[in-house]
Design a protein around this nucleic acid. Sequence first.
DNA 1: CACATTTGTTAGTAGACCTTCCTTACATAC
DNA 2: GTATGTAAGGAAGGTCTACTAACAAATGTG
Lengths: 386, 386
Amino acid sequence: MNGIGRRLRPVAKVLPEDGRAHNRSLTLQQLFHAGPVSRADLARTTGLTRVTISDLVASLMSEGLVAEMGVRSEGRVGKPATLVGIRPDAFEIVAVDLTDDASMHGAVLDVSGAVVHRRSTALGGRTGDDAVDVLLDLCRELVALATCPVLGVGVGSPGVIDADGTVVEAPNRGWYDVPLAKQLSAALDLPVHVANDANVAVLGEYTYGGASGSGLLVLTVGQGVGAGIVLDGALVQGHGHAAGEIGHVTAVDERDDAEGTPFGSAELCACGRRGCLETLLSVPALRRRVAGLDRSAADAALAAVGRRLGIVLAPVASALNLFEVVLVGPPDLLDGPLRDAALRTIQERTMPVIGSELRLRMTALGEDGALSGAAVLVLSGQLGVS
Amino acid sequence: MNGIGRRLRPVAKVLPEDGRAHNRSLTLQQLFHAGPVSRADLARTTGLTRVTISDLVASLMSEGLVAEMGVRSEGRVGKPATLVGIRPDAFEIVAVDLTDDASMHGAVLDVSGAVVHRRSTALGGRTGDDAVDVLLDLCRELVALATCPVLGVGVGSPGVIDADGTVVEAPNRGWYDVPLAKQLSAALDLPVHVANDANVAVLGEYTYGGASGSGLLVLTVGQGVGAGIVLDGALVQGHGHAAGEIGHVTAVDERDDAEGTPFGSAELCACGRRGCLETLLSVPALRRRVAGLDRSAADAALAAVGRRLGIVLAPVASALNLFEVVLVGPPDLLDGPLRDAALRTIQERTMPVIGSELRLRMTALGEDGALSGAAVLVLSGQLGVS
DNA sequence: CACATTTGTTAGTAGACCTTCCTTACATAC
DNA sequence: GTATGTAAGGAAGGTCTACTAACAAATGTG
């Protein structure tokens, strides 16, 4: 078993320098997650020899990415280890979250993923090229705020976005086939990575949320509903880069009136069809549903939505044998009867080996999950680290 | 963009020899699919230089895997190309399909994936170690039939099977934590690969069924219902190696009686719960449902099942942005009202970007799909070819 | 017939990692 | 205090991989 990701069809040649780049990423990965460690530690965890690690670390030091950070103090036998780690001032990352319809939220993050500066811009109804200009100005402002070299810019946006960072369609912004990454990169003279906001969220959760690896689905609940999926250590892209577009799956049928749950008839969705998950689960829909209800009625309403969510997720959880489903959104709406009902429903509707293993929890990242994810986009794209 | 599969976290070191092995597989892959071609052609399609290709081909020739196959006859300018291809007598593959509860079906396949010999063994109710013995005898018989060196043995079995070919659980056979691949390999002194039968089926379809790549789900309908999924060129394993276990998702709720479709109340499933997809879609269930009905009633009954299938698949197709769903099973039951209704239902219940792009078809492979898939398991595991 | 074109090989080079051996620096036993 | 063992890190040399450059062979074209 070699170290090259097991895929069915080998798809491109691998040169020795590609292997080198991979091992460099592997080393950075260790430094990123395990903090300052010695070269010998790196050799042990990566499986490379101390000689090779020394060479790689020397390269990384000459690039200014890592530095020696003193000597390990613990009194062990042998020569004390000199610790190396990623320099805290090696770089900063600019991240922008475009989930909000009305404004753009950006930040400068440091090496550890912590937010250093924040800036937001109201969009004021601008769309299309104008919205790109607003985004560009926000990026320029953030880049100017950075006190270290900027590793790159990461953008999480609603819509269908391909692997090159071209927005295939994002109706809310009026973007259709906009090569956003290329445009921003040219204007800013920096690497720019753009991805769907739900995919960005799952990247953040995968890297910073303590997820243990394979089988993670992150459901983002905001104006709309989206999902991002990481399977076997890779983001699921989908045939048309539209993986995770789960908001417009039918979740309520006309006949569900009869169920006794308070759904009325299947509600008309912005997409033109009826009964989409988004008509139940988006934040506005949930707020509308619980408005004016007393506690127990509101709980029942939320539980009913949770049950619908569970019905939609059960086949997905089964087909993919998911390990964990993570909810991102307002905890007052999601983290209670809704979550409980969803998990219960999934467990009721799947075989034990699937349902009983599955965890369903709220995100471990706070409001900055999207920004962290956009930063991961850059880390992953530029350094191969996540 | 290097040639190493994009995964989020680099997981193991890559040595130059791993790159070599990768490029070797890449070359074999071309030879496998494009038939005999010249070294120069290989250089062009792989991106490696002619020198490197010559070197790789020389290795493969010294291993007896490929051979020169005459000169290209077409009158083009320049030195005529000497064609190289995989030797038809380089190896044969032994494949066994354990999907059938009552017997084991095996075959010897040649390099091109065609069945050369067939053997089956009735199981006679034997389970556990006895069943392993029967399988071992069948394999020995098949290996003896082969006239070329046997590349390896591929086994497709129902149940949950991990990446090492250990059967975690296969209730029908009474296998629990049986290291089947290891046992067979030791007894036969050959490489043995074991995988879930639905996963094997999707491998066969992916390689021989003309699938264009990412986003393929194969649904096998037999005694039970299973699914295998290939995303972005990789088989989905799942957190507990149980990906594709979709047969026991709830597809009929108690209240569905009211729908006017002929489901009675949610039927009791072998798994102990009610309304599982398998209670509708398995071959026995379908035969039972259409028994004694006239044509139009039977069609309506099949369409009703198809609609239920569509409801279950819609969230999966949306979440993964599938390209193609392939049905494996009796065409008289599946390829008609059932398939039509399923596709229509998926399209009704997903947004256009998902549903309108999705294809739903019967397998292009005949009854030997499972055997072909088991052969792919060996090709992929031993040569990196699929 | 001279020449361009294509194929495949030979020779030499650069990169990547390995094994082996060495120095340095510490803890521990005597 | 001295000797010994252990661990970290570096230097030298070797192997493997794929590349570039150059060339011979075989063919079509002007």
